[in-house]
Amino acid sequence: MSTTHVLVTGATGYIGGLMVPRLLEAGHTVRVLTRSADKLPAEWKDRVEVCEGNATERADLDRALTDIGLAYYLIHSMDGSGDFVERDRRLAADFGSAAKDAGVGRIVYLSGLHPEGPLSKHLASRVEVGELLMASGVPTAVLQAATVIGDGSASFEMLRHLTRRLPIMVAPKWLKNKIQPIGIEDVLYYLVAAAELPPEVNRTFDIGGPDVLTYKEMMLSFARETGLGHRVIFTVPVLTPWLASHWIGLVTPVDAGVAKPLVGSLVHEVICRERDLDELVGAPPGGPTPYREAVRAAVSPG
């Protein structure tokens, strides 16, 4: 793999925090843009260039993007406050413009897997962010993933706590919708490998594991893999995403402001329609990680 000078935004988040050491291992020189250097993980903080600043400020973006060949855009609004659609739209447009002016060679963005047609507000916003970055004039790879299975993933934590705390539950009918989850190791592999895409590539890519399951099947498989025993799940047609997010907030540590956009995306069936990225950068070593194997890795100590 060729090496380059890489910027990672969202480095204090779940994906960004795991991405940085992978990029360092691949030989890249890494810079992170963060509002607070004190929040960076100690295990790699001293191995990167730290640019303290805010992605909302053009001057901070210009400093962070100077001499950068590849930029990872891992900024999402998941706090449920304010007009996150407009906030994400403005952030993406400003980042794309600054990256173009700085001569960045590629942007990589992790978005959400989605079907055609009307989308939940949060998922539609993620799609729009990808479109804005691809329209910036900087070649952009938008990697679209469904539920990420890994310790620390908000969507996985929601599934984990629901399954553990409710041996019998009444749940929305859209728990029968089909989902193509992906293990965190595969997500990180694809994000790092996207650095090797040809310079003319400017498009979305669907990424997912080998299994297509309903959310209900995911919960039942999680229970089996973790020795929880059989779970009984009844589905009803009347639990709206808004009500469901507050229900989840009551029975899990996941904040309702985070749960709401996650729950909203579950009303859609999210299945990969193409695997083109495998053709360009290769599949993960050993092939895509099966769901149950990803669960075992996520709950294993250490």
Rank of each mutant, 00 (worst) to 15 (best):
M1I: 05
S2P: 15
T3L: 00
T4C: 07
V6K: 00
A11C: 03
G13F: 07
L24C: 03
A26C: 10
T29S: 13
T29Q: 12
V30K: 00
L33R: 01
T34G: 05
L40W: 07
P41N: 05
E43F: 15
K45W: 11
R47A: 13
V50I: 15
N54W: 14
T56E: 15
R58H: 12
L61C: 04
L61I: 07
D62Y: 11
A64Q: 02
L65M: 08
T66I: 13
T66E: 15
A71S: 07
I75P: 06
S77M: 14
G80A: 08
D83A: 04
R87F: 15
D88N: 09
D88C: 09
R89G: 04
L91V: 08
K100N: 09
A102Q: 06
R106Y: 08
V108E: 00
G112Y: 08
L113R: 02
L119Y: 10
S120T: 09
S125E: 08
R126W: 13
L132R: 14
L133C: 09
A135G: 13
V138Y: 07
T140L: 08
L143A: 05
A146E: 04
G150W: 05
L162F: 14
R164V: 15
K176M: 14
N177K: 06
K178C: 09
K178R: 14
Q180L: 03
Q180S: 03
P181Y: 02
G183R: 02
E185D: 15
L188V: 12
Y190R: 00
A194V: 08
P198M: 06
P198R: 04
P198L: 05
T204I: 12
D206Y: 09
I207H: 02
I207T: 03
L213F: 10
K216M: 15
K216S: 14
L220R: 11
S221W: 13
R224Y: 14
I233M: 13
T240K: 05
P241G: 02
H246Q: 11
H246M: 13
G249K: 02
G249I: 04
L250R: 11
L250D: 05
A259F: 11
V263M: 07
H268I: 03
C272T: 08
D276A: 14
P284H: 00
T289Q: 03
T289K: 02
A294H: 04
